[in-house]
Every structure is written in structure tokens, then in C-alpha cells.
Simulated scan of single mutants.
Amino acid sequence: MGSDIESIIVDQLMNDIYDGKYLAKEKLPSEYELSSAYKVSRMIVRKAYIKLQEMGYIYSVQGKGRYLKNRSQLIELTLNGSESFTKKMLDKGYNLETKNIFCTKIKYEETIHKELGVKKEAEVYKIGRLRIVDSRPIALHVSYVAKSLFKDIEESGKAIQSMFDYYRGQGYEKFESNKSILSIQFATLKERELLCCPDLVPLLIVETNCIDSIDNRMLEYTRILYRGDSFKYIVE
């Protein structure tokens, strides 16, 4: 019974939020007010608020209460493969920091090797970059590239922050993508640690590729994890 009431409280608060009943940074009803309104214990109300916080809708201030997050501050992100994430963020005036967090050779993965157009025995490396906007980690980019195309990737990959900049240094100038797959999933423990996100904040997963548009050469296959509470997505 308690979990049913908890879900009812969560649903009602979400409806109120979507209906604009509360403004950004406005204080929400106290545990006492809601427990009285629903005739339940404050513990049930507290669990409802914890769930909303884990979903990324609200935040708490010690000793003061819960407040609505400013959803209007979500970053508009165009999902295309012709421009780098770095350029998109800098063009919008955001303070972007990128951390290269790994460059490792992977074992054979049929999907990745097939997308790159290389044989099973080919060496493929994955390069991971954590994207931090305005001091908040919000995306994880993992690019897969074949060593047969980029001979220096084992060493150079450890310092790459922008794959597009790396490709330009290799003589490639124009890029495009001919494939994008979108899916939703919850973050693993490691992903939550990297992105500093609560358990119930979903991730938008974008699997795409990058092709040199001059000679139609496949440069990389990419898997990008975006925090669902940080972006508004424009699909092109």
C-alpha cells in the first residue's frame, strides 16, 4: 500500500511540474504538508521526493526543503555527425572541458569491426572522452578506430580530446555520418560515477559513424552517452 501511495504522490508532483504549477527554483510542499494531504507517513513522502530527485527533477537544500530544477536550462543539442561536440558547445558559448579517460585496444567485437569495415584480426582501439560543461559532466564519447588507418593511434589516442581535430591532423577535412541509432538505458555504476548522475536519470545512447566525405572512407564508429537531464535534442 505504501509503494502505491508513493507512486501516486510522484505522479501528481510530476503532473504539477509539467502543468507549470511550480517555477524553477521554487520550493515544493514540505513533507508535513504532503503527509497531511495524503494522510500518509512522512517517510512515504520522503521516498517520493527521493525518487523525483533521482529522476533529476528536483534538488534538496539541507534544512530548507526541496526545489524544482530549472529545466529551461537544458542544452539544445543537434544530433548530426558533421560537426564535433566541442564546436557545438563552444558555438553556444558554454564552458567546455574534455578529459581523455582511456585509449585501449579492444577484443574482437563483430558489430564494431563490421561497422569499421575491418577483418576479425584487425587491431581496433577505443578512445573515451568525458565531456564537462559548466563544471558538470554530461556526456561520454567513445570512438572506435582501426589501427590499419591510423598507425599512431595507440600513442596519440591517449591525448585526443577532439576526434575531428585529430582527423584534420591526419589530412581529413570534411566529415559526415550516414547512420545514427538512438536508444535509452539507465547508467551502469561506472557510468554513474563518471557522469555523477543519480540512479534514475536515463541516458540517451547515440551510436553513429564518421566518414570522410571526400573519399567515403570510414574513420570511426562512435557510441555517445548523453545525460537525459541535461539536453534537449534536435534530430537532423
Rank of each mutant, 00 (worst) to 15 (best):
V142K: 05
R227Y: 07
T78G: 07
S230C: 14
G228K: 02
Q185A: 03
S213A: 02
S213Q: 00
I106C: 02
S148T: 12
L79W: 09
I138S: 03
Q12T: 15
K158G: 04
I9T: 05
E97G: 01
E33F: 10
Y38A: 10
G20K: 04
K92T: 03
I211Y: 05
V206R: 13
K119R: 15
K232E: 10
V206K: 10
M55L: 14
Y57F: 15
K51A: 14
D91Y: 11
L200M: 13
E110M: 06
L194H: 05
R136Y: 13
L116K: 06
I8M: 10
I58V: 15
K105R: 13
N95T: 13
E31F: 14
P202G: 11
T78F: 06
P198I: 08
L34G: 06
Y67I: 11
R66H: 15
S84K: 03
K120S: 07
K114M: 04
Y94I: 10
I58Y: 06
S3E: 08
F231Q: 00
L182H: 14
E121K: 13
Q161P: 01
S148Y: 01
K87I: 00
V124G: 07
G2T: 09
K147W: 01
K88A: 11
G81V: 03
K27P: 09
E191V: 02
R227L: 05
A122T: 04
L52G: 07
I101L: 04
I224L: 09
L34Y: 07
C197S: 06
V133D: 05
N70Y: 08
E193W: 09
S36W: 01
I184L: 00
I50Q: 11
R136F: 12
K120Q: 13
E33A: 14
K107T: 15
S180K: 09
S143P: 01
Q73T: 08
Y32M: 12
L219G: 09
L34K: 03
I106H: 02
L140E: 04
I153S: 03
G157I: 08
L96N: 01
N15E: 15
I234T: 12
Y59C: 11
I184D: 00
I5A: 08
V235I: 15
G81R: 08
E54F: 05
I181K: 12
G93Y: 07
G56V: 11
G128K: 05
L130F: 13
T104I: 12
